[in-house]
Nucleic acid binder design. Structure first.
Length: 922
RNA sequence: AGGACUAUAGCUCAGUUGGUUAGAGCGCUACCUUGACAUGGUAGAGGUCCCCAGUUCGAAUCUGGGUAGUCCUACCA
């Protein structure tokens, strides 16, 4: 084995091996465990959020697979309607071709080509992370099977009246020319103006002042509203306004939606271009005057001078024209929430169109109940509130999109506008007995991407057929997802699945946090702070990183800033840390639901951990290869204290890992593994094994016992660690396992270690604690007194009891080696001791003679610090015990514990004082 | 406006049902190339647990109020 761990050398090799051998496919009995991957965009590429999420799912999958479950990780990708269509359109644009020129058929052909070309990227990257889904079952939301499920669901919901077509105000994206759902609109505060206009009263002098942030919409006003109880305007209710620029007269109406205290208390009402106005328009039977085209330019409903104008140009012109008429009262600065499309970034228009909707209110009821009754549980729990809040006030879901890429809506229209919904034109004709002469036209729209995603848990398993997989794996075990798609995806999956399967899609929803950069900023291309998980695995030099981060940036200034920040943060580029280190970093950061700041320092630490593991393996192999390791259970072996101790600690670690995985605390699981492997196995057990193996006097049984423990414990913790660090554990296991009498083609399918209570050895734990106490005591004196490590010492033990004496007898070899001692002398009570620095282990005093070694002042300083510490503790304990209320009311065992503490502190203090005296007298 | 979350060492974070000497990693300081590992070893320094009040024998932990920050939902023209 190499001296340092080289991840690149082993990762692809093992991954290819695993996949080729079919290890990822379900195998096992009735005990099913299943996770559905949140399907990434088929043409997308891996970001840190994916990395985090896949890594968590893979640990769960590998864990359950090893634990003997029939484990399926269903993988697949999403067609991502808008996102994918936009990418392809942009590509075509660059070639000087428009989608419209190409035509629908040819365009869709192009998208499939693009999918074929770039669709492998994300799945290749998933493989680099070591993810172990069953690739043989990979699905795509536009596969024939899944498309069939989509159609089936649409038709059925239509028949049940849960899907309907309606004309109403939608969020219209004028750049993409499609309706989008409420969820796809992001509103952010932007600076704007509040214009105040004078609207002249019809048939008399005077005017009302109305305020608006969108002057151009006044061309579509159909009323002015005031509050019904507003005394200022009582006399005007029912009268008319002469709407400027248009020559139309509009009524003054009363509606308690109006806030009397805002502005003048008069509101212009534009029912066709504002959601609130729309509702009011319906209440009052106002005309809905649509003044826009699909592009958000002004249409023929407006006076000629404005027709064909772009909406923001029209805004300026309306303001200027009103000003010229003396009707502009004033303009105020105003910050307002501007709704923008999450994909296009342009301002969204409320726009009157005909669209398809899902009656979400009806479907939400059972979905709410499923969470209320605990059939589905969110982890962490608090996300259930978010879910409830949204579900209880859910709006109907607009599912039609004016796009070409997606599942086309299975609805046909005849010339009189009748709607026929069915699987195909032929099916529709047959069902409705339509004459072949009658012209039918299929709906041009496609379904919202999330419509097909909502069926994911059952459509991927073969629904609507009644498949074996459905029976075996549905409902699935857990959904691992980000909070950002609870509404988009999780809620809709629950609704659809309950409706069509009469069962929940999953029992648990594990909601993880967002991966942010080291400063806590969201990672985004435009901020230039994106980290690519693959770069963390393979490394990237600075120039490439800068180029990558600034590529495609339109603003040179921004690119400059990004470059500067990147050069500052990564002056050496990014080192190749390997997949295992990256994965372990994700686990260590995955505490309950909170966002994580990705700190490069962490991954470096875990790279070092990999190296530690690697070298521990080298040590074990060095000592065990070609040696008698007592692999047979019948072999004659003798387990020493250290062996019994590490075996005992291993059990505790196994129990802790099982417990923490069950509660999705991957941070705690990773910490327990790190602690055990580094601080116990490497730092203490390997060190203790050295004297054991080198001791010429030791029996063959004892040495065999040490070798067996070295190899068996390592073999076990490699399996324990495998779900978290799949590659390094496989590589080492292949070398180590045969020495433990195990041989297999992969660690992946080996049983997961389970804690054995019988192997917990509290006596051994206590003995090792004692041993560590003595060694650390001596090392501390060495450290603080600057005694060179090479210098061997003689120490004296005083005031010990029989137990101490016995422990000394059994562990003298360990003490000598680990504390670098020449000799250890046991002093009988009262015996004279040389002047020495002292460490306390319980009541036992460990004396390091000072002659020629120890600086008097340094030792006095050290003792003073010790005394200070003990006195502080003593004060606290005495305070408690002197409080009668504490004695009275605290539980007896707590009081007893404090009393014990008091006693040992007092004892320690006495000894420290004596020691101070002795030193002072020197 | 409503709601959720967060505040603990220089930094990133743990801290189960109230009882610890408040922990880890990174960073920092000193010493050390000892036959697995300098991507290492040994030792050490470093904390007003955001603030105020309350409950309690006892609060980082529970309650109320405040401050600061993050996010979600809704939205006033």
């Amino acid at each position: 084995m190499e001296k340092t761990f080289q991840p690149a050398a082993i990762e692809t090799h093992w991954y290819e091996q695993w996949e080729r051998q079919g290890y990822f496919a379900p195998q096992g009995g009735d005990n099913a465990y299943c996770i559905m991957i949140p399907p990434p965009n088929v043409t997308g590429s891996l970001h840190m959020g994916h990395g985090f999420q896949q890594t968590i799912m893979d640990a769960l999958i590998r864990y359950h697979r090893m634990a003997g479950h029939n484990t399926l990780w269903q993988v697949g990708t999403d067609h991502a309607g808008i996102a994918t269509q936009m990418v392809v359109e942009r590509k075509l644009d660059a070639e000087g071709v428009s989608r419209q020129e190409l035509g629908r058929e040819a365009f869709i052909e192009k998208v499939w080509e693009w999918k074929a070309e770039s669709g492998g990227t994300i799945t290749r990257q998933l493989r680099r992370l070591g993810a172990s889904p069953d690739w043989s079952r990979e699905r795509f939301t536009m596969d024939p099977g899944l498309s069939h499920a989509v159609q089936e669901v649409f038709i059925e919901l239509y028949r049940e009246g849960l899907i309907y077509r309606g004309q109403r105000l939608v969020n219209w994206d004028p750049a993409l020319h499609t309706a989008i759902s409420d969820l796809e609109v992001v509103s952010e505060e932007e600076k704007g103006s509040l214009w105040h206009f004078r609207y002249p009263l019809a048939g008399s002098e005077g005017h009302l002042v109305v305020a608006t942030t969108r002057p151009e919409t006044m061309l579509g006003d159909s009323a002015v509203a005031v509050h019904p109880e507003d005394e200022r305007y009582q006399h005007l209710i029912g009268r008319f306004i002469e709407l400027p620029l248009t020559g139309r007269e509009i009524p003054i109406i009363a509606d308690d939606y109006v806030d009397r205290d805002f502005g003048t208390g008069c509101v212009k009402i534009t029912p066709a271009h504002d959601f609130n106005d729309y509702d009011m328009g319906k209440r009052h039977g106002l005309p809905m005057i649509n003044i826009l085209t699909d592009d958000a330019t002004l249409n023929d409903e407006v006076p000629e001078a404005y027709r064909g104008m772009e909406r923001f140009d029209a805004r300026s012109k309306v303001v200027a024209d009103l000003d010229a008429l003396g009707l502009l009262d004033r303009v105020e600065d105003h910050t307002l929430k501007v709704p923008r499309g999450d994909r296009s970034g342009v301002v969204i228009e409320p726009y009157l169109t005909r669209q398809w909707y899902v009656d979400a209110r009806a479907m939400a009821k059972p979905a709410i109940a499923a969470v209320e009754t605990g059939s589905i549980e969110f982890v962490p729990r608090q996300w259930e509130n978010t879910y409830f809040a949204w579900m209880r006030d859910i709006q109907d879901w607009c599912i039609s999109r004016q796009l070409w890429w997606g599942h086309r809506i299975p609805a046909w229209y005849d010339e009189s506008g009748n709607i026929y919904v069915g699987a195909s034109e032929a099916a529709v004709r047959q069902e409705h007995g339509l004459d072949s002469e009658l012209a039918l036209r299929q709906d041009d729209d496609v379904l919202d991407t999330w419509f097909s995603s909502a069926l994911w848990t059952f459509s991927t398993l073969g629904w609507p057929e009644d498949t074996e997989e459905l029976r075996a794996f549905h409902p699935t075990s857990v959904l691992v997802t980000g909070f950002d798609i609870i509404f988009f995806w999780v809620a809709r999956m629950i609704m659809m699945t309950l409706h069509f399967r009469k069962e929940v899609p999953f029992h648990k929803v594990y909601v993880h946090g967002l991966v942010r950069d080291a400063e806590g900023q969201k990672m985004s291309k435009s901020k230039g702070n994106v980290l690519d998980p693959i770069d963390l695995i393979d490394g990237i030099d600075l120039e490439d990183l800068v180029a990558k981060r600034t590529s495609g940036m339109m603003q040179p200034k921004l690119a400059q800033r990004v470059e500067k920040a990147t050069r500052k943060q990564f002056p050496e580029g990014i080192a190749a840390y390997g997949t295992d280190a990256l994965r372990f970093t994700f686990y260590s950061l995955a505490s309950t639901g909170r966002d994580i700041k990705f700190d490069i320092g962490r991954i470096e630490g875990y790279r070092n951990f990999c190296n530690k593991i690697w070298n521990a393996a080298r040590y074990v192999l060095m000592n065990c290869e070609g040696e008698d390791c007592g692999t047979g259970d019948e072999d004659d072996v003798e387990l020493g204290l250290a062996d019994r101790w590490i075996i005992s600690q291993l059990q505790s670690t196994e129990a802790e890992v099982a417990r923490t995985i069950a509660s999705y605390r991957f941070d705690l699981a990773s910490q327990a593994l790190y602690e055990f492997i580094w601080n116990q196995y490497c730092d203490w057990y390997l060190e203790l094994s050295k004297p054991a193996l080198q001791d010429e006097a030791a029996s063959p049984q004892a040495r065999r016992g040490t070798r067996r423990t070295l190899i068996r414990v390592m073999e076990t913790w490699l399996r324990l660690l495998h779900p978290f660090m799949p590659f390094i554990t496989e590589e080492i296991w292949q070398n180590v396992a045969p020495l433990a009498g195990k041989r297999a083609d992969t660690i992946m399918l080996q049983p997961y270690p389970v804690a054995d209570d019988k192997a917990v050895d509290n006596a051994a734990n206590a003995d090792i604690e004692w041993l560590k106490g003595v060694i650390v005591g001596i090392r501390t004196i060495r450290g603080e007194m600057n005694i060179p490590p090479a210098r061997t010492l003689t120490v004296y033990l005083r005031n010990g009891d029989n137990k101490d004496q016995q422990r000394l007898g059994e562990n003298a070899t360990f003490l000598k080696k680990l504390a670098r001692l020449e000799a250890i002398e046991w002093l009988e009570p009262g015996a004279e001791a040389p002047a020495a620095a002292t460490a306390l282990v319980g009541a036992l005093e460990v004396l390091v003679p000072m002659a020629g070694l120890i600086d008097k002042k340094a030792e006095l300083d050290r003792l003073a610090r010790e005394v200070q510490k003990v006195e502080n503790d003593l004060k606290r304990v005495e305070g408690k015990l002197n409080n009668p209320a504490f004695i009275d009311r605290a539980p007896a065992e707590v009081v007893a514990k404090e009393r014990e503490k008091l006693q040992s502190l007092q004892q320690a203090l006495t000894k420290l004082h004596e020691q101070q005296e002795t030193i002072r007298r020197l």
